[in-house]
Design a binder for these strands. Structure first.
Lengths: 243, 243
DNA sequence: GTGGGGCGTTTTGCCATCGTAACGACAATT
DNA sequence: AATTGTCGTTACGATGGCAAAACGCCCCAC
């Protein structure tokens, strides 16, 4: 039996029973490889699947009628993707692989049956979706009420802290795998202005760059500039049912 | 036994069994009245409760270090509020009553036990939290990539459509109960610019106003200007376990 | 090795959008 | 009559968008 990437993900938060683990593993019959740049889900197309991302990076986004793009979320290994298909039969957002990727798709009805049988898994998913909700409110405050520089700073810190959850190799530098245009589309700026801000922050010694890797030098200062809060540090899982 | 406002809310989406209804009702021992302007929850304070809003309107918001405010969400009767307290023991956002209000608080652990015993209720809550997530991605696209006028238009339409879900008296006009400053703090604009846009839209015959009530005249045109999608119309609840 | 072609980054000048500050009108409270 | 809250209006200026071009880099073909 192949290991379940969903089980691995959930086990990062809370220990799972063997029954839970094997039930999770049964969901995943065909991990799927996707090439960099390929579309995993297209907005408005019928969807019945959700995914867990095993390897690589994925983004979700929408294109507005004027052609501009808003990137909604960048996903990292272990993330749970596409849960909107439980309530909308047409995808509200597109999914594209930012790198070569391995995703584990499940059918939405198989997920439902799992949640019926394993209430602790259901509770954990409910918790994580609340954490995602708070992450999105943080982004909203950033988009609505902070300057371009603050948005870049908090975006970099967010990516950094989320990478660190699963990737222990990340200390103070990381490979973003995003173009400046993609950064701009994430935080509501043009690529030109992203570039201005990044160079400015580099000149000020806040960050540095070499061949695609970004190094954060003054975390505390960056957090201040970006009005950034690291929510991962303060999560509290004792709401969950006892194992 | 008092009726449960939570049960009423959920029953709007799907029929509930008597067992489910009475379990929901047991959660609510003390509906609480709150005066207009009073704080229901303060950011960073310890919280162990969630709420369903029975009467009136509530907003959630954060204040940034420079004093500016981002309003995250306006809640209407029937909405489920403050679920972040399941995962963060300190509130990530403040809640304030916009009008005189009646809220039904539950303890977060009582909610957990309910979800364990009633998987269908758990599934329904999971669904609704996914719908909320999509609503927030729509707002993010609006904040990040649309003009001031588009934001005002989509904000008005969103408020309108959400009011209509529960309030059958709403046809084409409604009472927003928000100052222009509050509108601005919701959509990332200053009150001055909100005022500019509203007066412009009034001149163009898109909306009209009289003593606090707003009337929407050209819905289709407003949807186009705001790049607005009414997600309520396309929800699909057949993912839920059979009753 | 040389000459593209594609892709992302860097840079510039111009200017629209939107924020800031400040004040008056008006209604509702007290 | 004084106070408070909201809306309306203006002048001014900063932030950040837009368009366009050059630059650097990598890969590939010849």
């Amino acid at each position: 039996m192949a290991t379940s990437c969903f089980a691995e993900r959930l086990a990062k938060h809370v220990p799972l029973s063997d029954a839970e683990k094997s039930a999770l593993a049964r969901l995943e019959e065909n991990p799927r490889k996707v090439k960099r740049g390929a579309m995993i889900q297209r907005v408005n197309e019928t969807v019945t699947e959700l995914f867990v991302l095993r390897e690589g990076r994925v983004m979700s986004f929408v294109i507005l009628p004027d052609g501009s793009r808003q990137i909604l979320r960048v996903y990292f290994p272990g993330d749970f993707i596409g849960s909107a298909s439980t309530i909308y039969s047409k995808a509200p957002e597109s999914l594209v692989a930012l790198t070569d990727v391995v995703v584990c798709p499940f059918d939405k009805h198989a997920l439902r049956r799992l949640l019926e049988d394993y209430p602790r898994v259901a509770a954990l998913l409910f918790l994580l979706s609340n954490a995602e909700r708070v992450a999105m409110t943080d982004r909203m405050a950033s988009l609505g009420r902070t300057s371009a520089k603050a948005r870049v700073a908090s975006f970099l810190l967010d990516m950094f802290d989320r990478l660190r959850v699963t990737d222990d190799g990340v200390i103070d530098s990381f490979d973003l795998k995003l173009t400046q245009e993609e950064i701009g589309d994430s935080i509501g700026l043009t690529s030109v202005h992203v570039n201005r801000m990044i160079r400015q922050m580099e000149q000020e010694g806040l960050i540095s760059r070499s061949n695609g890797r970004i190094t954060l030098h003054q975390m505390a200062r960056l957090e201040e500039i970006g009005h950034y809060i690291n929510r991962h540090k303060v999560m509290d899982l004792d709401w969950l049912p006892v194992g």
